[in-house]
Design a protein around this nucleic acid. Structure first.
Length: 139
DNA sequence: GCCAACGTTGGC
DNA sequence: GCCAACGTTGGC
């Protein structure tokens, strides 16, 4: 079991949109970055991830689950780009903001802090536990 | 809205 | 294969 973080601008694709898709989930498409793609290719069905709102939200708002492993991105014919499907699992009781994360020295190594531009990031199990605790949310 | 950081592109 | 130019991202 591995842990991840998915980033999206909420006015483009937000948590509410993800929840609306229900258990069927939705492609995490549109990624055009090799590092992010490689992370998605490494995902296994059942892996969990944080759902983060960038730019106009700046907070982790929910937990998602990988419900389909990497397959071609249906929004392009370019076969370089794969994506996974994710479904909403549960919202954070208390969203964890970028400021909260930066204020916690134990989270200083998170990709979210060190490489904020990467849109699909790995999260360590330790970071996972800490962030869930900060959000009053079951891991 | 600004601008720094980063990734990608393309000419050489 | 290098590197300058360019476009995009995302925190502030």
């Amino acid at each position: 079991m591995a842990f991840w973080l998915f980033k999206s601008e909420p006015d483009v694709w937000g948590w509410d949109d993800q929840v609306a898709k229900g258990d069927a989930g939705e492609e995490w498409d549109g990624v055009r970055n090799y590092q992010a793609r490689n992370n998605m290719r490494a995902m296994k069905k059942g892996d969990l991830g944080f759902f983060y709102h960038s730019r106009t939200g700046l907070e982790i708002v929910g937990i998602v689950e990988v419900c389909a492993e990497a397959h071609p991105d249906s929004t392009t014919d370019d076969d370089r780009w794969d994506c996974v499907d994710i479904r909403a699992v549960r919202p954070f009781v208390k969203p964890v903001t970028m400021a909260d994360i930066k204020a916690n020295p134990e989270l200083a190594e998170m990709a979210l802090v060190k490489n904020s531009r990467l849109s699909v990031q790995p999260v360590t199990e330790t970071e996972w536990q800490i962030v869930c605790a900060m959000g009053d949310t079951k891991p």
